[in-house]
């Protein structure tokens, strides 16, 4: 009995980052749709702009940027909300949004899980820079057409609207997205195409929350972390021991590497330069 409990605790511990992430993602989705007795709803609106705890305005800076480029005048509430959101991600790291907040991440992770379960090998290789191309397109199109170009297809708010009114008009698009990640391209949407991810990547370029390898001599060089990483190139320098922290802003801080690493070499830390800034000569191991 005790050993079973122990095993369960160990299993939970092995997935602690994934569990924390899923919990937060699900809580955020529920905050918009569930009425708590006596209190009502915690969050109103959707992820493009919302009101939290009846007072705190939050606005997606990418949506607001499209709106301003399309010709909208400045408005106080939206700017305050966008400043809060942008400040948070600029300080901690932009793509935290992708793995901790965005509900589409759950959909694409499910697609990847199924893809691995069924051992589907066929893969359409896309450039990871396509998302930056789509980001530029979304901004240019907003200027040209005077509407919020990405919001015409943005699956994030689409999913939220579908949930709010339990309508199904957008479900075909979400299903197509799932099938694309499942059958066509491995991590195709979040890892290659989504311009929201690209926007947050640039926004959080100097983000300070980083996967660090301060105990790098504990690393056995198994590269298991790279195998589970949604953006494997960000970990390469760390595994090659050319860097002590992941500094590439593609990193989503999902913690998959921390869950996977059995040697305890990796940790998630607020990093202000200092030790982990070391780069250059690889550490020679005996």
């Amino acid at each position: 009995m005790a050993s079973a409990l122990k095993r369960m605790a160990a299993a939970l511990n092995r997935h602690r980052w994934l569990l924390m992430r899923r919990t937060l993602q699900i809580l955020i989705v529920l905050a918009f749709i569930v009425d708590i007795p006596e209190l009502g709803r915690i969050a109103h609106g959707n992820l493009s702009s919302s009101l939290w705890f009846w007072n705190v305005p939050l606005t997606d800076p990418f949506v607001l940027l499209q709106s301003l480029l399309a010709g909208a005048p400045l408005a106080k509430t939206a700017l305050i909300g966008a400043a809060i959101v942008a400040g948070f991600y600029a300080f901690f790291g932009g793509r935290i949004y992708c793995s901790w907040v965005c509900p589409i991440n759950m959909l694409t992770d499910a697609a990847l899980w199924l893809r691995q379960k069924l051992n589907i090998k066929g893969n359409l290789t896309l450039s990871r820079e396509l998302r930056s191309v789509l980001l530029v397109m979304a901004l240019v199109l907003s200027v040209i057409t005077g509407t919020l170009a990405w919001e015409i297809i943005n699956p994030i708010t689409l999913l939220q609207r579908e949930l709010m009114w339990t309508s199904s008009a957008g479900l075909t698009f979400l299903a197509a997205l799932f099938l694309f990640d499942f059958l066509v391209s491995r991590r195709g949407w979040c890892g290659h195409l989504c311009p929201v991810g690209a926007f947050y990547k640039y926004l959080g370029h100097y983000g300070r929350l980083r996967v660090t390898a301060l105990k790098s001599d504990a690393c056995a060089g198994c590269s298991d972390c790279i195998k589970v990483c949604p953006e494997p190139h960000v970990l390469a320098p760390v595994v090659a021991q050319k860097a002590l922290a992941v500094t590439d802003s593609d990193c989503t801080r999902c913690g998959a590497c921390l869950d996977k690493c059995s040697s305890g070499a990796l940790s998630m830390k607020l990093d202000f330069g200092g030790k982990s800034a070391f780069r250059g000569i690889p550490i020679v191991k005996s």
């Binding site: 709803r41 959707n46 702009s49 005077g146 509407t147 919020l148």
Partner: peptide, 17 residues
């Protein structure tokens, strides 16, 4: 309508209120 299309960020706060 044109200005509305560019200024509205589709958040639904009006809907809720």
């Amino acid at each position: 309508e044109k200005a509305f299309d560019s200024t509205c960020i589709r958040c639904g706060l009006c809907v809720k209120d």
